[in-house]
Design a protein around this nucleic acid. Sequence first.
DNA 1: AAATCTCCCAACCGCTCTCCC
DNA 2: AGGGAGAGCGGTTGGGAGATT
Length: 235
Amino acid sequence: MVKKTQRGNKGVVVVANRGAWIAEEDQKLVEYVRIHGDKNWRTLPAKAGLNRCGKSCRLRWLNYLRPGIKRGNISEEEEDLIIRLHNLLGNRWSLIAGRLPGRTDNEIKNYWNAHLGKRPLTIEDLNLKLNKRLEGTGGLTRPLPTRILASRRDLVATAMDPGGGGGGGAAAEQLHSEFDLERLLSLITNLDGGSSTGNDVGTEADGSGSTLEFEFDDLDKFMNYEDDIGSYLLN
DNA sequence: AAATCTCCCAACCGCTCTCCC
DNA sequence: AGGGAGAGCGGTTGGGAGATT
């Protein structure tokens, strides 16, 4: 097993195990967390009798030992959601994983790198697939948002209109930062089978290949919105 | 059957973020 | 306000397993 030296308490040099975890280490970690909780990872290894660094213990717990973890067999619906969320959020693996119960950021990242990242599947392909599943309910007549721009605190989702026929380049319609779920949902069309809130928001900037942008004043509001999309896709 | 290649995934590393004093 | 410690995140790597030659 690979070892690595590191400074322990009071500057004493200790040698930590690295590499694959063995069953005995897993057992010690699970037992310790069961009794004391998953806090204070820095001091946990010594208290749990593990010759590992705290980061390694935390990763092992979060990705493999924590209750409720699903392993493998990512379903078509989950894959669809991963692709959509990746389009929206970029490589924010933890946020994407947060939308997929039982999945970890590491697993999603690995899955993306191994399977999805190299596949030329566009959001339009997904919408076509989705429309097929929705046949009979009217399908999607408005675009789903496809990309989030800007920083964590200044989120901007951008939706490209796939049916726009043209050329893009149209001026984007800027919505103000006070997020309004009703207004946003009204852009997503027929997700609830067509019942309208009557609050149709503004208009696409023009009718041809327009770009719509939505601004969110914080991530939670966006993710609340994303919950609606996610649960819709998974149902 | 052995050697080599390729792919996948568990784990590590370093940077950033958040919280507390 | 700012500095330090701990936690979290995303990129990268190493090694094992299966495929190919």
